[in-house]
Amino acid sequence: MSENKILFNTGSLDSLSQEIGKLASIEDSKLKLTPDNADSGLAKLVLTLVELIRKLVEKQAMRRVDGGSLTDDEIERLGETLMKLELKMEELKKHFNLTDRDLNINLGPLGDLM
C-alpha cells in the first residue's frame, strides 16, 4: 500500500496482529461439505443448529429468571433441564469429535453464527 494506513493507535500493534491471525483462521470455521465428509459435515451442521437453539432457549430462560416471573420450583426444574441439555450436547460433540469452535460457523460478511 502506498501510505501508512494506521491513523491512530495508542496501544501496541499486538492486538492488530492477533486479529489478523484470527482472520486467517476463519477458513477453519467454514462449513466444508464434500462427498467425502458428508456424514461428519452434516453432523456439524445439525449440531451447530441444535447448539444455536439451545443457547437461545438458555438466554430466554435467563431473562425469565432475571425478570422474577418463575417460582423456586420452576427455577429448579429449569436448571435440571438446561444442565441435562448441556451435558447431552457435550456427549454429542464428543461422539462426533467436534469442539465448541467447530460449532461456530463463519457466515462470511455476517460474521460468526454464535
Binding site: M62, R63, V65, D66, I75, E76, G79, E80, L82, M83
Partner: peptide, 19 residues
C-alpha cells in the same frame, strides 16, 4: 437466599454470566 441444589447453583452461574 435461594436453595443450594446443584440445579439451582447451575442456574445461578448462568444467570451471573447472563447479567
Amino acid at each position: 437466599e435461594v436453595k443450594n441444589s446443584v440445579f439451582r447453583e447451575y442456574v445461578n452461574a448462568k444467570l451471573k454470566a447472563h447479567r
